[in-house]
Simulated assay, not measured.
Amino acid sequence: MGHYPFMMRKIHLLYAGPAGLAIEIGREINPRIWGEVCLYQYDASKTPEINMCYQFNR
């Protein structure tokens, strides 16, 4: 990761939209380009309502 000074180390992603587009976003997660990606999920019945549900490229 140190060879690209402009590369992000960690991305936090909260997506709300169609499932098909979520799959396309997931296909674009490239470990050579992206750093760690943290996915969050919204659940109104829990506190806090937004919780991390998965981490990629860890």
Rank of each mutant, 00 (worst) to 15 (best):
L13T: 05
Q41P: 02
M1N: 11
G35M: 04
A22I: 02
R9Q: 15
A16C: 07
L13Y: 02
C38E: 01
V37Y: 01
S45K: 12
I50A: 05
F6Q: 05
H3Y: 06
I33V: 15
M8R: 15
M7T: 11
I33Q: 12
P18G: 07
D43M: 06
L39R: 05
S45A: 14
G20L: 00
E49D: 08
Q41K: 14
L21W: 07
I29N: 03
R9M: 12
I25R: 06
I25P: 03
I33A: 07
K10W: 02
K46W: 02
Y4I: 10
R27C: 09
N30A: 14
D43V: 03
G26I: 01
K46N: 01
E49N: 05
P18K: 09
G2N: 11
P5M: 04
P31S: 09
N51T: 15
L13A: 04
K10V: 14
I23K: 09
N30H: 10
I11L: 11
I23T: 00
P48A: 08
P18H: 06
K46A: 07
E36C: 07
P5R: 03
M7Y: 05
I33N: 10
G35I: 01
C53V: 15
G35L: 05
I33D: 13
F6I: 04
E28W: 05
N51H: 08
M1L: 14
R27I: 04
H3A: 04
L39K: 00
V37Q: 00
C38I: 05
N57C: 07
H12P: 02
Y15C: 02
Y42C: 05
R58M: 15
W34T: 15
L14Y: 14
G2S: 14
A44V: 04
H12I: 01
G20M: 00
Y54E: 09
N51S: 14
G26M: 09
M7K: 11
E36L: 02
L13V: 06
P31M: 06
I11C: 07
K46F: 01
P31D: 03
L21T: 13
H12W: 05
M7D: 08
L39V: 02
Q55C: 09
S45I: 03
I23L: 10
I29W: 07
Y42D: 12
Y54P: 01
G17W: 13
G17Y: 13
E49V: 13
I11F: 08
R27K: 15
K10G: 04
R27E: 14
